[in-house]
């Protein structure tokens, strides 16, 4: 029901993705702010089919050498590659960083029991600056296998990047910096090395009062 409508291949589907900061005020009170968020817990036919973007338009925004986006696309199967344009919500102003936690939660589901490897590459001017690789095992729940990377700590590079971005006085300045900032996520089956999902993220700052927004595209080669 969801293929072509959201981020997912025949093998695996993204259920949730969020990057957030959370501060504990007292033992019972947490303030949570979402920088970006995708919730795909119940997609349906009713949602519009995804628009396409020619992957060649963004090759240079991501690593181009061995193992880069071009090579992944040429080796991978169609309908596995997606582009997300995020309008990140940076409208949070904190007085102090005490007790602050910066994290990323992502969740995938599949009909297959696998061990997955999730690589997240932060890129500046298309060059990888930091990579996190996480391995996740399946948990059988409600008739499908769930993979949940829960509250993975955000790397120092990203935390510093957010801090510096927030110090810029105008949104157009933030967008100018974000023009050269991207993230590439690749999910593979650890045991077979099959590429299951590849998501390229690009960013602007949200001007909405309703929090982070996004558009999802499928990446194709026309």
């Amino acid at each position: 029901a969801w293929q072509g409508h959201c981020i997912g291949s025949t093998k695996i589907r993204l259920v949730e993705f969020s990057a957030f900061m959370e501060q504990q005020r007292d033992p019972d009170t947490y303030n949570k702010h979402l920088f970006v968020h995708i919730g795909q817990s119940s997609p349906s036919y009713n949602e519009a089919l995804l628009e396409s973007v020619d992957i060649r338009q963004i090759y240079d925004k991501f690593p181009e050498k061995k193992g880069g986006l071009k090579e992944l696309f040429e080796k991978g199967t169609p309908n596995t590659f997606f582009l997300v344009k995020f309008w990140a919500d940076l409208s949070i102003h904190t007085q102090d960083e005490a007790g602050m936690f910066y994290g990323v939660t992502s969740q995938y589901e599949s009909a297959e029991n696998m061990t997955i490897t999730c690589s997240s590459k932060v890129c500046s001017f298309g060059k990888q600056v930091v990579e996190k690789v996480e391995t996740e095992y399946a948990r059988f729940e409600n008739g499908r296998f769930l993979y949940r990377i829960h509250r993975s700590p955000m790397c120092e590079y990203l935390i510093n990047f957010i801090h510096k971005l927030k110090q810029l006085p105008e949104k157009y300045m933030m967008n100018s910096v974000l023009e050269n900032f991207t993230i590439l996520q690749v999910v593979t089956n650890r045991d077979t090395q099959e590429l299951l999902l590849c998501v390229a993220y690009v960013f602007e700052v949200s001007t909405s009062e309703h929090g982070a927004q996004h558009h999802i595209y499928k990446l194709v080669k026309d």
């Binding site: 628009e51 396409s52 973007v53 020619d54 338009q57 963004i58 240079d60 925004k61 344009k85 309008w87 001017f125 298309g126 023009e179 050269n180 690009v202 602007e204 949200s206 001007t207 909405s208 309703h210 929090g211 927004q213 996004h214 558009h215 595209y217």
Partner: peptide, 24 residues
């Protein structure tokens, strides 16, 4: 853009790429 990259605005991208969604 530095390093010779073509600005995103000059690339062939859907119009929606530049339109922040309105919630609801």
């Amino acid at each position: 853009a530095r390093h010779g990259q073509v600005p995103m605005r000059k690339r062939q991208l859907p119009a929606s790429f530049w339109e922040e969604p309105r919630p609801g």
